[in-house]
Nucleic acid binder design. Structure first.
Length: 503
DNA sequence: AAAAAAT
C-alpha cells in the first residue's frame, strides 16, 4: 500500500488529493507518479478504473506549477479519444489544480470555438483535447505547440480503433522532441508499439493489473430470448429492469438508431431514461451525462460512446440490449459497473441471431454467466419471427425430464425454453439452478404483454480468475458476496429459490 | 453488422 504522501508530491498538490478523500495510491499511481515527476517518459498499460487519470494529472500539475503560460503557447497537452473522456480529464484537472494558478481549457468538437479561442489567446497552460478539434484550431493558427513540455496520450488503443493514429502522429511531430510524454493504452497492438518506439524516449513501462474484467465485483447474467424482434427485446429489457433493483443503470445498444428507439420506448413505459450517442447534440450529451452522474437520471441508454473509460463511481446495473460485436467492447461496457469496490450486475440479452458475437464474448471472458430465462409470453412479441425462432429452439432443445417432463411441440415456446441449457457451457454439470420469485415485476403502464413468472437456469459461476481490484470495498461489496451461490447480499429478488437441475 | 471524431 502506497500513500500519496510517499510519492514526492508538493504539499499543495498533496492537499488537493487529500481534499478529494483519497489517501492510498492505486498501483499505477504509485508507480507512474514518481517516474513522471522525475521527468521521464511513461508507457502505462492500464485500463480505466485503475486510477490512470490521476496518475498523469498529478504529475502534470506538479511539473507545471512553476512557470507560466504564454498566449497561444500551451505548456502541456492531453489527448483523449472521446469528448466525454476529455471532459472527465478536465474534471480531474479541476480538482487537482485548484491550489495552483494553472489554467486549462477543454478543446472538443460539437461546441462553439469562441471560448476555446479566447482562452488560447489569453494563454493557457494545459490543453485537454480530442484530436479533431485540436488540429482544427491549430490549422486556424490559434495556437503553437512548440512550447509543449508535457504531452499525455490517453486510451491510445481506442484512438487506434477510431482511426486517430495519423492525427496523433502529426500532433507528436508538432511538439518539440524534448517534451516529456506520458502514454497510456489498455492493450499494445503493433501499431501502438510502433508509435511508442517512435515518439517515447526510453520510457518506463508500467503495467497495472487488469481492473475488474469479469471481476468479483460484477455478477454477469445472460438472458436468452427466442426472438430477435425489437419488440421482444424491449419487453425483455423492461422485464429485467423492472425485476432487478436498479438504482441507476446503463443500457447499451449497438446502433445509434437503436439507442433512440429503446430510450423512447422506455420513457413511454414510464422509465426514467435518456439516450446518449455521437449523433446527438453535444450540449445534450453533456447534460444527459451530468444528470446521470448526479443521480438525477436513472437509466442512460447508450451507444459505445459510453462504453469505455467513463468513470461513474456508482452504477448498479449494466444492460446489454445488444451483444457487442466486438468482445472487448462487452468487457468495457460491463466495466461501467462494479467500480470503486461496489458490486454491480451486468445483464446481456441474447437472441438466436447473436450466436457468433456471444461466442466471441464467452471466449474472451472465459466464463459462463448465469443464465436467466424470462418466462414472457412471446406469442405477441415477434410475430413471424417468433415462428422461426421456435423452429430453431425445437432443434437445439434438449428435453429434461426433471423440469419439463411434458415438453412438446404443442407447448408455448416460453415454457420449453426453460429447459434449454447454456449452449456454450463448458461446465460438465449445471449447478443448482435458481428460480425467480413468482411475484410479477412492478409493471409500468404498458401496452405490451404483462410479465409472467421468471426462471433462472444457472451454470456454475466461475469468477475465481477475476483480478483483484485496487481500492477499498464499500457498502455494496458485502463480505458475504462470494459465499454460497456467489451472489452478493444484493441477490436479485427474483433469483432466490434454488431448485436442483441436472444437465 | 457499428461507433467515435472537425465541419
Amino acid at each position: 500500500m502506497t500513500e500519496f504522501s510517499q510519492l514526492g508530491l508538493s504539499p499543495t498538490t498533496l492537499q488537493a488529493v487529500i481534499d478529494t478523500g483519497y489517501t492510498t495510491a492505486t498501483p499505477i499511481q504509485a508507480q507512474a507518479i514518481p517516474v513522471a515527476l522525475a521527468g521521464r517518459d511513461v508507457l502505462g498499460i492500464a485500463q480505466t478504473g485503475t486510477g490512470k487519470t490521476a496518475a498523469f494529472t498529478l504529475p502534470l500539475v506538479e511539473r507545471l506549477s512553476k512557470g507560466r503560460a504564454r498566449a497561444r503557447m500551451p505548456r502541456a497537452l492531453v489527448l483523449a479519444p472521446t469528448r466525454e473522456l476529455a471532459d472527465q480529464v478536465a474534471m480531474s484537472f479541476e480538482k487537482y489544480a485548484k491550489g495552483t494558478k494553472l489554467s486549462w481549457v477543454l478543446l472538443i468538437g460539437g461546441v462553439s470555438m469562441g471560448d476555446q479561442v479566447a482562452a488560447l489567446n489569453k494563454g493557457v497552460d494545459v490543453l485537454i483535447a480530442t484530436p479533431g478539434r485540436l488540429l482544427d484550431l491549430f490549422e486556424r493558427g490559434k495556437m503553437l505547440l512548440t512550447g509543449v513540455e508535457l504531452m499525455v496520450v490517453d486510451e491510445a488503443d481506442r484512438m487506434l480503433d477510431m482511426g486517430f493514429i495519423p492525427d496523433i502522429e502529426r500532433i507528436f511531430k508538432l511538439t518539440p522532441p524534448k517534451r516529456q510524454t506520458l502514454f497510456f493504452s489498455a492493450t499494445m497492438p503493433p501499431e501502438i508499439t510502433r508509435l511508442t518506439t517512435q515518439f517515447l524516449k526510453d520510457p518506463t513501462r508500467i503495467e497495472a493489473s487488469r481492473p475488474a474484467m469479469t471481476a468479483e465485483t460484477i455478477t454477469q447474467y445472460l438472458v436468452r430470448i427466442p426472438s430477435s424482434d425489437p419488440k421482444a427485446k424491449r419487453a425483455a429489457l423492461r422485464e429485467l429492469i423492472g425485476r432487478a433493483d436498479v438504482k441507476n443503470g446503463i443500457v447499451f445498444c449497438n446502433r445509434k438508431s437503436e439507442v433512440d428507439v429503446v430510450a423512447k420506448s422506455l420513457k413511454q413505459h414510464g422509465f426514467d431514461a435518456s439516450p446518449i450517442h455521437g449523433d446527438l447534440d453535444q450540449s445534450l450529451r453533456t447534460k444527459t451525462l451530468a444528470a446521470f452522474r448526479s443521480g438525477e437520471l436513472k437509466l442512460l441508454v447508450a451507444s459505445d460512446v459510453a462504453a469505455r473509460g467513463l468513470d461513474i463511481p456508482d452504477v448498479s446495473h449494466v444492460f446489454n440490449y445488444d451483444v457487442s460485436h466486438h468482445a472487448d467492447d462487452y468487457v468495457h461496457r460491463i466495466g461501467r459497473t462494479g467500480r470503486a469496490g461496489k458490486l454491480g450486475q451486468a445483464f446481456m440479452i441474447v437472441t438466436p441471431a447473436d450466436d457468433k458475437s456471444l461466442d466471441k464474448v464467452m471466449k474472451l471472458i472465459k466464463m459462463n454467466p448465469e443464465e436467466l430465462v424470462l418466462d414472457l409470453d412471446w406469442s405477441n412479441l415477434g410475430g413471424a419471427r417468433r415462428a422461426r425462432a421456435e423452429t430453431k429452439a425445437a432443434v437445439v432443445e434438449t428435453p429434461r425430464s426433471d423440469v419439463a417432463p411434458s415438453a412438446s411441440e404443442a407447448e408455448p415456446l416460453a415454457r420449453r425454453t426453460r429447459s434449454r441449457r447454456s449452449s456454450k457451457a463448458t461446465a460438465p454439470e449445471l449447478a443448482p439452478a435458481v428460480v425467480m420469485d413468482t411475484a410479477p415485476a412492478p409493471a409500468p403502464a404498458a401496452s405490451e404483454p404483462a410479465a409472467t413468472p421468471v426462471e433462472a437456469v444457472s451454470a456454475e459461476p466461475r469468477l475465481r480468475q477475476a483480478d483483484r481490484r485496487p481500492g477499498g470495498r464499500t457498502e455494496r461489496d458485502a463480505p458475504a458476496a462470494r459465499e454460497g451461490s456467489g451472489f452478493g447480499s444484493d441477490i436479485p429478488a427474483f433469483l432466490r429459490r434454488p431448485v436442483a437441475l441436472k444437465a
